[in-house]
Design a protein around this nucleic acid. Sequence first.
DNA 1: AGTTACCATGAATACGTATTCAGCAGGAGT
DNA 2: ACTCCTGCTGAATACGTATTCATGGTAACT
Lengths: 337, 337
Amino acid sequence: MISSKEVAKEAGVSQSTVSRVLNNSDKVSKENVAKVTEAMRKLNYRPNAIARSLVSKRSKTIALISGPLHNPFFVETTSSIVNYAKERGYNTNVFFENNGDNMTVYETVLSMQVDGIILSSVFMDDPILKELQASQIPYVMFNRKHNEGGNFVEINNYEAGKMAANHLYQLGHENFGFIGGPMYTSTFYGRYLGFTEGIAEQTMETGKVFLNETDTSEEAIADAIFKMMGRKNRPTAVFAATDAIAITAMDTLLELGYRIPQDISICGVDNVRMARHHAFELTTIGAQSNKNLGRLGIEHLINSIEAGKENMSPIQVTLEPALYQRKTTGPIKPGSV
Amino acid sequence: MISSKEVAKEAGVSQSTVSRVLNNSDKVSKENVAKVTEAMRKLNYRPNAIARSLVSKRSKTIALISGPLHNPFFVETTSSIVNYAKERGYNTNVFFENNGDNMTVYETVLSMQVDGIILSSVFMDDPILKELQASQIPYVMFNRKHNEGGNFVEINNYEAGKMAANHLYQLGHENFGFIGGPMYTSTFYGRYLGFTEGIAEQTMETGKVFLNETDTSEEAIADAIFKMMGRKNRPTAVFAATDAIAITAMDTLLELGYRIPQDISICGVDNVRMARHHAFELTTIGAQSNKNLGRLGIEHLINSIEAGKENMSPIQVTLEPALYQRKTTGPIKPGSV
DNA sequence: AGTTACCATGAATACGTATTCAGCAGGAGT
DNA sequence: ACTCCTGCTGAATACGTATTCATGGTAACT
């Protein structure tokens, strides 16, 4: 590997001068700029980003700790985050959550000297938050939120649940199912709470919602469907806490021969791009924003990084959701199966 | 940030000893290991990965230059690559192709001192290959291949095209459409060539395939559908060069009111997970392997890295494809629309 | 006891770049 | 002629870690 020292020798100047040329310092004479540039070209020199980071203490790298890509929501956020970061001159080191071994990922990331961290897979009482705050590294959580606050960008999950409840109730349904993920995450917890409370308000009864708490794997969701559809008072309307869950659930329902929405209504959350596909036309609830949560998060994060430690203001954004009514929800059609 | 020097002072030893403890050297007495470990804990010390990389000349980081995530194929490969790399102890720096400004990405990556590069978005005559070979950095291309060879993992694209041709011809179709991407990439070129030659062999005629060369954007694919379906002899069978294209095409076709496969058959390539969904049941052609191309590529790449420069053997893998017949292809049903 | 061998340790150095600091040359001003 | 600036430059140093090298001490063996 060619170093700036070798470039210096080739150009007949000092390494300092090479470094100054590299950083577009104006304190270099035109002749030397020319000589150095030529030497760089001749030797095919590439500055060593690692060495630059060591001394400058900025790596121009951010870490993304994301939920898994089999959830299209995270596909969209990952794409937005990586691309936007690149636009702003940052590289992105990506990690995907893997059933709870997040601590080792956190350790790695904190060692890496990244300039910032954006993460989605946080539990409501995750110990990571204290670590993050202690580390002094700028960070933002998107999608999920921590009990203690911190920096986050989310949607109003409780409200999303309520909207689903109102929508499904107004269609005339009486038995409801909920399929979600772990309740120690703010998204699933908030959506469940909003949904059950919404249903209770409408029906003036509690216990009308059959809860399925899964690990969001395909198998677990399929199991939830089996269990739910085998019940005596089986639900005619299902609220899936994410579009990913809704889409997986639809797969199983279609396989079992149910028609949607004639036999069963299904409503998701996230308003993922795929939900608009004519093969789905999934009714869903999502933020009223043309930027997804990842994109909003990364913008805040980079602004935060570039503002410097002293000017870092807290980031706390909660977007109000809206209902996107499409074709997977409808009135009950009794006796159709 | 706490440095190893400060840990050394706290523990009453030299920085060398701290470093040795960090690297599990066996040449440290038990007492010193204990003292150092305790000091690390007390000061909440985290080794500086940047500094370690500078001296060790290994960053434990690989770069992934991937096609865009709106293509589910790349969703699956990205997921596999990042997760497998992590298992092997590598972090992944991710970049997504953005309409051809790849050169700036390459520059960044070559500066970054990554231990290896895995890339999918290579043109058949891409200048990057020479740069890669000159840089001495281990690399592997997956999905697409370069004219000059190099290290790659691909499927037999020509054969995939031929299989599609045979399948659609045997269903009785006579007018065919092809929707692909830029012909200067090996995938689209190979699949197109195989398809047209296959059709020509079967029909004993040339010119039976209506070619749509798009930039793979949703708009371009929709336009291709409009154009194709407006023709006098409009195709009754379409070969989409990727599942991503097939799925987007289906969206437009469904929107226009066509039934699949009664009005039009469609066959993709890649055998993406989503193709199996009961809302699609897309007939497609893919490798007969339980590991996707990204996963195969990253395995080879990391093996290559760890074998060392001297033992690096060329990687040239071409997987034979198979037909996965599902429900988007069928016999022609004349007069149905 | 004397020699050898080995082990654990610290001092010094290297990795490649950015930056501080001092110095030098030359021009402007008196 | 002398001082004062200004504008460039190179030497030296720092960043945090790994590693080499030399050393002092101790155990093993004659």
